[in-house]
Design a protein around this nucleic acid. Structure first.
Length: 585
RNA sequence: GCCGAAAUAGCUCAAUUGGUAGAGCAACUGAUUUGUAAUCAGUAGGUUACGGGUUCAAGUCCUGUUUUCGGCACCA
């Protein structure tokens, strides 16, 4: 999709369109007051205070109509430059604009733009005339907190997009529609990946057999990779006493995001929101020599977080999920090499899954946020500069995000965008000097003295749940053979004559651990083929007279129309090769 | 959590201004015995998410709850 904000022409066009929107809203809602109307990647929006009035989705058509009317009139857009005092005078009855003006530096030129009966404070630039604004569409309305702060009043936000030609606009709208069809929630329903139920609760998905196969294969995949890299896997309880999180420091920072306390016989338990404290205790269970480090403790661990109800989304954001977690206990001199190994693993895994659209985010603390972040300037500077150095050494492109760090340290996150445009972290690698401190972790150094290890928290697939959600979207539900819930579907042409051979092939494949089904229903071949294709099963076998006679199989690949014929042995070899090469590199 | 919208058969959707809840697919039964994306006929399927109210009459209007959707805020 075109990034409208980055495109010079479209940026100006959409910004002007935001003004056109404001003007139309002003005509229809005379009491409207306007905050800001910026250009974003997807188009533009305007935040508006309508007092007691409400814009509903059905009102968008009405507003669009007014916008078209104004555009047709074709007023010129005129720039005017003011001093701060003049600007304050001009917008004296608009508290929102006064707020903006007052925060501008004295002496700077302040500009505003006028089109017909509407003037707005704005840096510009704009198109010459509203006449150019013809191919636009208002897309959605929503509430949005003033200045992005939940403590403030909620304004109304109207989103839209504008293009130079009608073709471009229609193409864009078609693209948005196409993306909706890629939404993992829709595909998951079609492909029977997971379900939810009111009686279980929101954000708590139930994995159906097809989803469970995916889940299991991914667990096996990453576990094997990690074992080859020297990780040890453990299982730890999904709960602990609240005391554990008081020691780790999580209690102070995150108890509101945890499921509430369970009290019994004077003890207090919580469902765990993360696994770090458990793994710290496993490290502490033994005395460690400098020779033993790094020690890598991994777990496919189920965690529970009380996410805000409005944040929940399919498998992408849930209240219980399975983390592909590990904690790497390293000596200070090993931070760089170990961090590099994690980045290498991330790159390797993404390659295995053909994930190409992602970016690295270096998440740093916001030094002014004294509440969220653990206070120790020296520690933070050391940690942040270490990560930066490794990334630079690896020549990895990344962007920095202030205020996105964990409370205990900076991190490298891998960001992806979902089909419907949500930006999410998939993988993460976090540097932590704090938890080793809190749990008084040590190793014995060369000189016999106790030293403090450093911890790297990392998750490669992130959460299995979210990873599957993303995988469904990038593959459109057509999974590579090794992941496909059903890998081969056998269709005997005639039940009476071909079922025996079909069963024979079925048993052969099953013996090779191929996930295979046989569709011997009394339905026409075309009917069964159609269903096989809509289920996106990679291989569909057609077995009839010819195949029985020659001891062969004829197969059709998902999404293709031609049929290939191979001997049964060759076919099995083909499957095995495809599974092996894609699965284990 | 906040602003807004929605919830009708397993799924996708209909149901004039309040006036007998329907269709396609799926399921089941029977016929058909099939060579690459939907064979034909029949049967069954509903406290219209859940609770309360208005009305002679509520899927439709009001109200509370739950869940879902679009954003915002959040995301250890």
């Amino acid at each position: 999709m075109k990034n409208i904000k980055e495109d010079e022409k479209l940026n100006v066009l959409n910004h002007s369109c935001a003004h056109l929107l404001a003007q139309a809203v002003k005509h229809l809602y005379p009491n409207a007051k306007f905050w800001v109307g910026p250009v974003i990647e997807e188009g533009f929006y305007y935040d508006i205070d309508l007092g007691d009035e409400v814009v509903k989705e059905e009102d968008l058509a009405k507003i669009e109509k007014e916008m078209k009317k104004i555009a047709k009139d074709g007023k010129r857009i005129v720039r005017e430059e003011l001093t701060k005092e003049e600007a304050l005078m001009k917008f004296h009855d608009d508290p929102y604009k006064i707020d903006l003006i007052e925060r501008m530096e004295d002496g700077n030129v302040i500009s505003c733009y006028t089109q017909g009966d509407f003037t707005d404070l704005c840096r510009g630039p704009h198109v010459e005339s509203v006449k150019v604004l013809r191919h636009f569409k208002l897309l959605k309305v929503s509430g949005a907190y003033w200045k992005g702060d939940a403590k403030n009043k909620m304004l109304q936000r109207i989103y839209g997009v504008c293009f130079e030609t009608e073709e471009q606009l229609q193409e864009h709208l078609a693209y948005l529609e196409e993306m909706k069809n890629r939404d993992h929630r829709k595909l998951s329903k079609d492909l029977k990946i997971y379900m939810t139920h009111d009686l279980v609760g929101q954000g708590l998905p139930l994995w159906l057999p097809n989803g469970a196969f995916l889940f299991h294969e991914l667990e096996e995949y990453i576990r094997e990779k990690e074992i080859n890299l020297g990780y040890y896997h453990v299982y730890t309880p999904i709960m602990a006493t609240s005391e554990l999180y008081k020691i780790s420091g999580h209690w102070d920072h995150y108890k509101d995001d945890m499921f509430p306390l369970m009290k019994r016989e004077g003890e207090e338990f919580v469902l765990r929101p993360m696994n770090c404290p458990h793994h710290m205790l496993i490290y502490k269970n033994e005395l460690h020599s400098y020779r033993d480090l790094p020690i890598r403790i991994g777990e496919l661990a189920h965690d529970f977080r009380f996410e805000a109800s409005g944040a929940l989304c399919g498998l992408e954001r849930v209240r219980t999920f399975c983390q592909n977690d590990a904690h790497l206990f390293v000596r200070p001199d090993q931070i760089e090499s170990e961090f590099k190994r994690v980045v290498d693993l991330i790159l390797e895994v993404y390659k295995d899954f053909n994930i190409t659209e992602y970016s690295f985010r270096l998440s740093l603390r916001d030094p002014s946020d004294k509440e969220k972040y653990y206070q120790n300037d020296e520690m933070w500077e050391k940690a942040e500069s270490t990560l930066r150095k490794v990334l630079d050494d690896l020549k990895i492109d990344y962007f920095e995000a202030v205020g996105e760090a964990a409370f205990y340290g900076p991190k490298l996150d891998v960001q992806i965008k979902t089909a419907i445009g949500h930006e999410l972290s998939l993988s993460t690698c976090q540097l932590d000097f704090l938890l080793p401190e809190k749990f008084d972790l040590t190793y014995i150094d060369t000189d016999g003295s106790k030293k403090r290890p450093v911890v790297l928290h990392r998750a490669i697939l992130g959460s299995i749940d979210r990873f599957i959600a993303y995988l469904i979207e990038v593959t459109k539900g057509s999974f590579p053979l090794w992941l496909a819930p059903v890998q081969v579907n056998i269709i005997p042409v005639n039940k009476e004559y071909h079922e025996a051979y079909a069963t024979e092939v079925y048993k052969l494949l099953q013996k090779q651990n191929i996930r295979v089904e046989i569709d011997d229903r009394n339905e026409k071949l075309g009917y069964r083929m159609r269903e096989s294709q809509t289920r996106k099963i990679p291989y569909t076998l057609i077995l009839g007279d010819k195949e029985v006679e020659q001891k062969t199989v004829s197969y059709r690949l998902f999404g293709q129309e031609n049929t290939q014929t191979l001997s049964t042995e060759e076919f099995i070899r083909l499957l095995q090769e495809e599974i092996q090469t894609k699965k284990r590199k």
